[in-house]
Design a protein around this nucleic acid. Structure first.
Length: 913
RNA sequence: GCGCAUGUGGUGAAAUUGGUAUACACGCCAGAUUUAGGUUCUGGUGCCGCGAGGCGUGGAGGUUCAAGUCCUCUCAUGCGCACCA
């Protein structure tokens, strides 16, 4: 019966059986546990290697086949590195705070912690099926109370630090975070501390320096989400990145982090990183460093009252060409328009304010503005320059005011033309920017400066599902950091954790933190040990943004159970940080230290990746970590896309029920006999085209799934999922299986055959090639080459009924990182008693890399006319003469004379006639 | 508008320094072996042409003995930034 024939075949059933077996085995033998230097099984001869993914957010929707792409890639590389004698740290945690969990919880009425934990378990199970070799002991979620403790602890360190611009940082550049106590000491020494007098005044003074500080400033308020947002979370259209709700600029009292202090170092140190240029550019543009000068213009706002109007320019050398001034509608000088202009100015400012950012964008290019009726004095020429208010000048860049040089600036010229402002076409420029600045400095009318596009990072949210701040306020409103022994501050159980959301356009609404509703939690009585005894305090009721947890999770992997809360507490044992991330390993481009390979999507280019670098640098300055940067090498994987189909009404129909029909040379798609439209894009529930890893594992096995995802195309490119092509990966594995197992009997194939030279050549070329591709993160071509070797051996098997064992073993070892389960099984069948996880990766025997003869093309006038097989070491003349003797060449050349013969030994012969 | 990336068979895609374009896989075709069923093996498969031969890496030029690869221009798609002074 056919069933008997298939009994020992590598099919989905067999694959699943093998996969269960080995996953259990790995579990039971703690195969993926990675020893720290202090552990018993630590081997100091192995080099450390840290490879990780951007950890997942455990969404309720579950995974589709696109999600694990990066996880499989890092897993393949981690397994490869283990077989190359590295102590590989490869773990996966969960980024579990955040809006979606909260929103899902609000919809279902369940506590976000419950749904989040449930989602994490689901995701763990989904990922487990794929045989990912994560260290099970190093996992955690950012919501774990011990993790929250350290997130709050780091916040405390940032809060209690200031940026000293003169101080050299440990990498020798100027500017470094220092404990705020050092600033206090300086203030005391200078007498300033006494001068400030009250605690309140002192606290407010320090607030101006703290790296985490409170300010009443313009923030992005999103009524639809009921929270304020960081600049990085607002789209170019002025909408919230999440939910696409309108965002308004409003002044609120909020927490920020002084990331702008680090703008220079965050820009400069990009040079040290092995990151895709694209991401480096995005960060550079986001930080937007530009050097130039401030120039002060005197403005008489009344006959007796003069104001200083400060502008920023990158071209101080063009100051003699300044023909007028322009200020932003929000600029303070707009409060002093000349009498006759007051009405116009007010009207204009109101219109400008009411413009949404979308309108502003649509109007970009159409310059509008109004004359203030005031004049500024050009400090160099003494000319009187009219001042305009116009919304093409932005308040949040530079100083919100510019000197307009229409002759040299398109925008200024456009404005001048619109308002018929006369300007100089020709004027005398300063020789250099430097000389212009020097001149201005001497006159006391300017200084050299650098401005940034980057703003400080808005750090508080009016949300329930986030880390509480370890901050309390006394009755005077003075803020204090909670002592370490009162950490973690955990979220209270509340009856209502939903944020107060408003109509999406309700600009005048105000944020309300959900935590503020629970009086029993917000009020706290304690003795801070400052000599004031037991006092009443109120807790900070805002929560941290979900970026907080992802800013340091890579450190937690190194020391996952770290609880040290003593006097010299650090977030991670310094010895472990030094071992895993320390700069002395110098394994790639530079000795910054940091994670050896970080794999994730491009979407975090200016969010997570910027924030994490900032935190890391603060921790570095304060001496808590030895690595300068958190992520030494970054790799952006592409996305797995999918086809979706819509009917005539634009509704999505189930993609797996759509039929492909060939009709008159054209391919059409039908669903229930109805013509449908094919679209290419994301995979998603609403698009009805989701394929889950479970589906694929059940039907083909996890190893096939892994091979397929790794072989679809280059890892950094996006590509469409095609279920019907998965079978190819399975055929590869079943051919590999058949090289070892007789599928009729279940017994071993004869593997005692003596290996022939031809096969050894194929093997060694494969080893050489595959190693190179692995090092360069090109799994797709590595697999192609492995398939080539399997196909070659299949030919050998067909012809001789036997396969040489000493070729099978390296083949299995090379395939193991991709398809670990089947390879463990085959390895065992070949009589090996140890798991191959730490077996030595095959190395090349160079003598089999060279062939005696090679085949090259022979061209006439650059066109290939024949193929020549010749001894590899033939001389130039031999190449030429052999090529000339080829019948095809004789034929093509006819009686034409060869003017020139180009011979590149081993490459090509070309005859020019 | 500026910047970056990509463009190769019916499909996903290969191709050290410029050196036989299309490795590997899907699909398709044929033969063998099996046979009631997503079997395996072997071979074929860029396009046009009966053939010799011609044409082929988005398009147009250029450099070169030789261009998918280098240069110039251009088109398309995707991403990022966008009045940044």
């Amino acid at each position: 019966m056919s069933d008997d024939v298939l009994k020992y075949r590598y099919d989905a059933k067999m694959a699943n059986k093998i996969e269960d077996k080995w996953q259990k085995y790995w579990d039971e033998t703690h195969a993926f546990n990675t020893p720290n230097p202090s552990d018993e099984d630590f081997d100091k001869n192995l080099q450390p290697y840290v490879i990780m993914d951007m950890f997942p957010y455990p969404s309720g929707a579950g995974l589709h086949v696109g999600h694990p792409l990066g996880y499989i890639a890092t897993d393949v590389l981690a397994r490869y590195m283990r077989m190359n004698s590295y102590n590989v740290l490869h773990a996966l945690g969960f980024d579990a705070f955040g809006l979606p969990a909260e929103q899902y919880a609000i919809q279902t009425g369940e506590h976000p912690e419950k749904t989040t934990k449930h989602n994490i378990e689901n995701m763990r199970a989904q990922l487990k099926m794929l045989g990912l070799a994560h260290d099970p002991n190093r996992t955690f979620a950012t919501i774990d109370s011990e993790y929250v403790r350290w997130t709050q602890w780091i916040f405390g360190k940032i809060y209690n630090s200031y940026f000293d611009g003169d101080e050299l940082n440990p990498s020798g550049m100027s500017g470094s975070a220092r404990p705020i106590s050092e600033l206090v000491d300086k203030l005391k020494a200078s007498g300033k501390w006494n001068e400030l007098g009250s605690d309140k005044a002192r606290s407010e003074y320090l607030n101006n320096y703290r790296l985490a500080y409170i300010s009443e400033s313009e923030v992005n308020w999103c009524p639809g989400l009921g929270t304020v947002l960081a600049n990085e979370e607002v789209t170019a259209e002025g909408k919230s990145e999440r939910g696409n709700f309108p965002v308004f600029k409003k002044k609120f009292r909020q927490w920020s982090m002084r990331i702008t202090s680090y703008a220079d170092r965050l820009t400069a140190d990009l040079d040290l990183l092995d990151w895709p240029d694209k991401i480096k550019h995005m960060q550079m543009n986001w930080i937007g460093k530009s050097t130039g000068a401030f120039i002060d213009f005197e403005v008489m706002v009344t006959d007796s009252n003069s104001q200083n109007l400060r502008v920023f320019t990158t071209r101080p050398d063009t100051i003699r060409g300044a023909s007028f001034m322009v200020v932003a509608p929000e600029h303070p000088i707009c409060a002093f328009p000349a009498k006759m202009q007051q009405k116009n100015v007010l009207e204009y400012i109101n219109t400008a304010r009411n413009k949404s950012s979308i309108e502003r964008q649509q109007d970009a290019g159409k310059k509008t503005g109004v004359f203030l009726g005031l004049y500024a004095k050009n400090p160099i020429t003494g000319e009187k320059l009219p001042i305009y208010v116009a919304d093409y000048v932005l308040m949040n860049y530079g100083t919100g005011a510019i000197m307009a040089v229409p002759a040299d600036d398109e925008r200024d010229q456009e404005f001048a033309n619109t308002y018929k402002i006369e300007f100089k076409q020709d004027y005398k420029k300063f020789e250099t920017i430097e000389s212009a600045i020097e001149n201005l400095v001497q006159m006391g009318s300017g200084e050299k400066t650098t401005t940034y596009r980057l703003r400080d990072w808005l750090f508080s949210r009016q949300r329930y599902w986030g880390e509480p701040f370890p901050i309390i306020y006394d009755e005077e409103g003075i803020d204090y950091l909670l002592p370490d022994d009162l950490l973690p501050v955990l979220l209270p159980d509340v009856p209502d954790y939903s944020p107060k959301v408003y109509d999406i356009d309700d600009e005048d609404s105000i944020p309300e933190a959900p935590l503020s509703r629970t009086e029993s939690w917000t009020s706290i009585e304690l003795d801070l040990g400052d000599g004031k005894g037991m006092r009443k305090f109120r807790r900070e009721t805002n929560t941290m943004p979900n970026w907080a947890g992802s800013c340091w999770y890579y450190l937690r992997y190194l020391d996952v159970n770290h609880v040290d809360n003593g006097k010299n507490a650090s977030v991670v044992d310094p010895l472990l940080e030094k071992y895993w991330l320390g700069p002395e390993h110098n394994r790639t481009v530079s000795n910054t230290g940091g994670v050896d390979l970080y794999v994730g999507g491009v979407e975090h280019a200016v969010l997570h990746l910027l924030y994490a670098r900032f935190w890391h640098k603060v921790l570095y300055d304060l001496g808590f970590v030895s690595s300068v940067e958190p992520f030494k090498k970054l790799f952006n994987q592409g996305y797995i896309q999918a086809y979706a189909y819509t009917n005539n009404f634009g509704q999505y129909v189930p993609a797996n029920e759509v039929e492909e029909i060939k009709k008159d040379d054209e391919i059409i798609y039908e669903y229930n006999g109805e013509l449908v439209n094919k679209e290419y894009g994301k995979m998603g529930k609403s698009l009805k085209n989701v394929i889950t890893p479970e589906d694929v594992v059940k039907e083909y096995g996890a190893d096939t799934f892994r091979i397929y995802e790794m072989s679809m195309g280059p890892l950094d490119l996006s590509r469409p999922w095609e279920t019907r092509a998965v079978i190819g990966a399975m055929r590869f594995l079943s051919r590999l299986w058949r090289l070892v197992v007789n599928e009729n009997t279940g017994g071993l194939v004869d593997d005692t055959k003596e290996v022939d030279v031809e096969t050894l050549k194929v093997l060694n070329k494969t080893i050489e090639f595959v190693r190179t591709e692995m090092e360069n993160i090109r799994p797709n071509t590595a697999i192609a080459k492995l398939i080539g070797l399997v196909n070659h051996l299949t030919g050998v098997l067909t012809n001789t009924n036997a396969v040489p064992r000493n070729v099978l073993k390296p083949l299995i070892l090379m395939t193991a990182p991709f398809a670990p389960h089947i390879c463990e099984e085959l390895w065992q069948k070949l009589g090996e008693t140890n798991s191959l996880l730490h077996a030595d990766y095959p190395s090349v025997d160079k003598k089999y890399l060279v062939d005696d003869t090679i085949k090259i093309g022979v061209q006439v006038n650059g066109k290939v006319r024949a193929t020549l097989e010749i001894a590899t070491n033939a001389s130039i003349d031999e190449f030429k003469n052999a090529a000339l003797a080829l019948p095809q060449i004789i034929n093509v050349l006819g009686d034409k004379k060869v003017k020139k013969a180009i011979v590149v030994p081993g490459k090509i012969v070309n005859f020019v006639v």
